[in-house]
Design a protein around this nucleic acid. Structure first.
Lengths: 233, 233
DNA sequence: GAACGCAAAATTGGCTCCAATTCAGCAGGT
DNA sequence: ACCTGCTGAATTGGAGCCAATTTTGCGTTC
């Protein structure tokens, strides 16, 4: 019998992978910082084998760079690396949106609208200045993009896109977003959903491209001003 | 698209990785075929450890798919998977060409022209009906694209692109190209090089996009007409 | 005769040990 | 004082072993 949800995939290697990835993305491993297999292994009470698999995986995903006999370290990204990555993502995700507008079934359209609604709800209800709040927002955002991808029926392209999405986050070290930026994102989500529903691929693609580039600008802006002001809420 | 550097990295895991990838891309492992670690290990006279690392790596690159406790198999791709992948590649590589046209230094331009010349030479001189000939052509083609990428100064995007390039090859099972198609490719290379040299990003991008889509069409055409083999075991 | 269930074989996931390589600190020579 | 070379510690890459899970084949039952 096939499980519908892969929730039970708690293999050791998978656990280490998720742990390390989160640690890196949320900035607890700084860029360039070395990752010692034995330390990670003992900190999670496992042997080195699953750790090595996770490290290799992160390496081919690009989050980590490792040299022969010399270990692994968090890949340091330059500002222009990140900007380029965002633009690549914009093109890929624009393409995905075109596909979605061409191929979406009624169920898909409903799922996309649901996800857009959910994102909006989360943005309004959650404290986006806290780490847990930010996590919830990112989750809702992922859900929207996942719904779109599913509608586009292009899983292979999505796999590629995933690494383009994750990598810049290393650089961000889990920065926060302003309420305005989030509401703008929500608006774009709605417009994209609308374009998909009315089967206008070109517009869906253009909106998504613009949405991602807005994200890039916000991201780079935040990078230039190291200070964060969660004064509200 | 392989990495051209790292010549001295002959670690066992790397050897297995290259071996397996070639076996898959050249079709000696059929789509969906199971990959048994112990068999690969003994066939290369090594332990399972490096084999496992290679398998994991190929898995995250998307060439193979593996399920918990149930092993790995060559990822089966549908015709539409391949078409989508090509289109994604077209957008990404179009972007790369734009970057190249914006950022290329004189050395880069020279390298791109050299690679285009070399490709042309190989296409004319080599027997493109043989497996070795095809390998030589693919190598020259890689060289052109690598030169372009280097000029664009966007290594991270290139890393992503690589998986979009390799994956469809699994499906091809190492098909052959007609002389006409190859000469058309060569022409596009030259036009792209020209656009880069004269700093016309938009045209460079458009040409590259078209070039890749031509490749897609040739690829899909070949897929539909089951090919005649060049009489070799 | 087909479906079910059980047991043996095959295979994977993980652990531990070992050799090879790199890194760090210290001593000695200039 | 500074550079060089050496030795010991830390770390990685690989091998072999074992437990857990899946697969396969056969016999039993309805």
């Amino acid at each position: 019998m096939a499980e519908l949800h892969e929730v039970s995939d708690v293999s050791g290697s998978e656990r280490v992978y998720r742990h390390l990835r989160r640690e890196i993305i949320e900035g607890r491993y700084g860029p360039g910082e070395r990752i010692v297999e034995s330390r990670v292994a003992s900190s999670l009470a496992m042997s080195r084998t699953p750790v090595r698999e996770a490290v290799r995986r992160l390496e081919t995903e690009g989050l980590i760079i490792s040299t022969h006999n010399r270990g692994a370290q968090v890949r340091p990204l330059t500002e222009s690396d990140v900007a380029d990555l965002y633009e690549a993502r914009a093109r890929l995700e624009g393409f995905m949106s075109e596909l979605a507008a061409q191929r979406a079934e009624p169920d898909d359209v409903a799922a996309i609208h649901d996800a857009a609604d959910e994102f909006d709800r989360v943005v309004e209800e959650v404290d986006h200045g806290s780490v847990e709040g930010l996590r919830a927002i990112l989750r809702a955002n992922d859900r929207f993009h996942a719904a779109l991808v599913r509608a586009g029926r292009a899983d292979q392209v999505f796999r590629i896109l995933a690494t383009a999405v994750d990598m810049p986050l290393v650089f961000t070290a889990f920065k926060l977003y302003s309420h305005d930026e989030l509401r703008r994102s929500s608006m774009f989500h709605r417009l994209i959903a609308e374009a998909v529903e009315t089967r206008q691929p070109e517009r869906a693609g253009r909106l998504m491209t613009e949405h991602v580039l807005q994200g890039r600008d916000a991201h780079m802006r935040r990078f230039r001003e190291p200070e964060v002001e969660p004064a509200s809420a």
